[in-house]
Amino acid sequence: MLNHPPKILLVDDQPTNLILLENLLQSEGYDTVSATSGMEALTMAKTSTPDLIVLDVMMPGMNGFEVCQKLREDSILQTIPIIFLTALDDDRSKLRGLEVMGDDFLTKPFKNDLLLTKIASILRLQEIRSQQFQQEIKEKTKKQLSAAWNINLALSEKLRLFVPDQFLHRIAPNGVESIQLGNAQEEEITVLFCDIRKFTTICESQSPSETFQWLNVFFTQMNACIIANHGFIDKFLGDALMVVFDRPKSHPQDAVNGALMMQQKIVKFNSDRAKYNLIQPINIGIGIHTGKGIIGALGADSRIDSTVIGDVVNTAARLQELTKHYECGIIASESVISQLHPSEFFEVRWIDRVVPRGKQHAQDIYEIFESGVKLRS
């Protein structure tokens, strides 16, 4: 049985028809989404993953038969049941509906009971087939499972300790075996650089094993703040972190929230620093910038690495360096600040208009700090 109300995508270029269908199906406990064109229907099918589609045929641009054919060519969407609901009542149209592999064909005006019965029957049949298929796959998997498969699975899990899932989705779209040099995506992201102040001085007062111990604790705590705000660590750079936030339309806010949480976590870390033979409290500087970047597999044929390339990375690194000069805990660029939502939890202060090292154009930079607390590095 489905563990959620079945979702039905309704496609018709006439709003009155959609309202009629929505009222009818919602009264029977179905969840509905609607589209008024063929192109919109394809987009919604990909984003809403309906359990069934009720599809008009005569629509401008792309007719229902063409929509059905596109869906059947999509490996993810091709098994969604489709009921044609159309004013067409000729044999040629019905034959065309069968040719594009529609599941049923009803003509307008339709009888409510007939439509509801067909929907319920098709959904039940689809569920039975799905259960049978899943059982067959399960049994086949058990039979084919071997030591080699177990080893490969273990290696894949270990790989995630070195390469975050967000990278794997981009550089290995069809599984780990599909990783290859050059796999990449360009998109807008927010990059955060975090650096420990006076790290060299700290190391001079400790043994390498002591430094190694507290660094792992420090990175673990910072990583928890990053994950909690939908980011992922791209690289550990000795005493520094390069972090990527990529949640659509939310990554600048996520990065700022993560940075503030990291600053708060440092307070707790410093309260326990005696465990790690740390005489002075640890301070960090954070730089944040939003812009276009390439996320992908970079390197040579025999050695590749997952990474982010672009001006967004260089600028974030330069802003982190400026935290030392301006004695700020967090510095962000205008591209970040312009996308933040007003909040009672943090404040923003304009610092200066500067040309960061290695750059050619001046930009405004801002300090971000927790409300009521002036954070200094």
Rank of each mutant, 00 (worst) to 15 (best):
260 L>T: 06
252 P>E: 05
257 N>C: 10
33 V>E: 13
5 P>C: 09
210 E>A: 03
365 I>N: 07
72 R>L: 05
185 Q>S: 10
299 G>S: 08
39 M>D: 13
193 F>Y: 15
140 K>N: 12
261 M>R: 11
18 L>V: 09
186 E>T: 08
100 V>G: 09
30 Y>N: 07
23 N>D: 11
50 P>Q: 04
294 I>E: 10
300 A>S: 13
211 T>N: 14
272 D>W: 10
136 E>H: 11
321 E>F: 04
233 I>H: 04
254 D>H: 14
87 A>C: 09
208 P>T: 04
371 S>M: 08
165 D>I: 06
292 K>V: 06
223 N>C: 04
203 C>K: 04
235 K>E: 11
298 L>D: 02
330 I>V: 14
122 I>C: 06
86 T>H: 03
15 P>R: 12
329 G>W: 00
320 Q>F: 08
67 V>D: 08
157 E>K: 12
154 A>K: 14
269 F>G: 00
72 R>K: 14
279 I>V: 12
76 I>L: 12
298 L>S: 09
258 G>L: 00
322 L>M: 15
269 F>V: 01
226 I>E: 00
370 E>F: 03
150 N>V: 07
43 T>F: 14
347 E>D: 12
276 Y>C: 00
311 D>K: 05
10 L>N: 06
149 W>T: 06
151 I>S: 12
43 T>R: 15
83 I>D: 01
369 F>N: 07
173 P>A: 07
17 N>S: 10
87 A>Y: 11
336 V>I: 08
212 F>T: 05
96 R>N: 11
300 A>N: 04
65 F>Y: 15
277 N>W: 08
298 L>M: 15
173 P>E: 09
170 R>V: 09
156 S>H: 05
221 Q>L: 04
82 I>G: 04
